[in-house]
């Protein structure tokens, strides 16, 4: 009834690709989030006019297709800077900046959602700007921003499929390699999709869990 040439070794090969997808995503989302918080705070603090140059650069990362960013960055690092770096490094670099550009907007929205009167109350207790940020503003902004951030992280995970153009063999590229060899595209894409789902699901559930927990506050 159903017959496939897919072997256990092929599945391990796919799992390794999935591992690369997870690692690239985890590194990029981690760095991108830290930078995104930094950029978001800078944008709120400096105001629209003073932060215009930063906003402009972030807009570039948000508007140019990721595929083009990856190809251009790879060429720039290799040919212009003459640096010997791996495709993996370029992939993480570009995806981190890409993530940070989106994350900065999410953070800005979250900070703006914290009422000025709440911040005023914190400052009136003698808290410094930094203490207000750390103990009041960022925790409250996180609650507002979390659903968007989860969406961003899941999006970056799927977008990471594009890093094959800088010779990183992640999940989708691994699948394509098997498709070429086994000639069973539908079945292999189904398995590939299942892998993506298995990676995404815990993150989506974790976000749901946090939202529910915080709504009880």
């Amino acid at each position: 009834m159903f017959d496939t040439a897919l072997s256990a070794n092929d599945l391990i090969f796919l799992a390794k690709g999935a591992g690369i997808t997870i690692v690239v995503t985890a590194i990029s989302v981690a760095i991108g989030t830290v930078l995104g918080i930094l950029f978001g705070v800078i944008r709120v603090q400096l105001g629209a006019v003073l932060s215009a140059p930063l906003t402009f650069v972030l807009d570039i990362f948000r508007s140019v297709p990721l595929l083009i960013q990856l190809v251009l960055a790879n060429a720039f690092v290799g040919m212009v800077l003459q640096l010997q770096v791996s495709g993996f490094f370029v992939a993480c670099l570009v995806l981190s900046l890409y993530t940070s550009a989106y994350c900065a907007e999410i953070v800005r929205g979250g900070i703006d959602a914290v009422p000025a009167t709440t911040r005023r109350a914190a400052r009136s207790l003698g808290m410094s700007w930094g203490q207000d940020m750390r103990y009041i503003v960022l925790p409250l902004a996180t609650r507002v921003a979390l659903p968007s951030w989860i969406g961003l992280a899941l999006g970056v995970m799927k977008d990471s499929a594009l890093v094959y153009v800088v010779q990183v063999t992640e999940l989708l590229k691994s699948t394509q390699i098997l498709i070429t060899r086994l000639q069973e595209p539908m079945f292999l894409l189904l398995i590939c999709g299942a892998f993506y789902f298995i990676i995404s699901f815990p993150l989506a559930r974790f976000g749901g869990y946090l939202e529910k927990r915080w709504s009880n506050d």
């Binding site: 009422p115 009136s124 925790p139 409250l140 609650r143």
Partner: peptide
């Protein structure tokens, strides 16, 4: 630190 103030809107830290 030595001047406490309480506002019309109580401004609890909700988290």
């Amino acid at each position: 630190q030595k001047i406490g103030i309480v506002f019309q809107q109580w401004n609890a830290f909700p988290h």
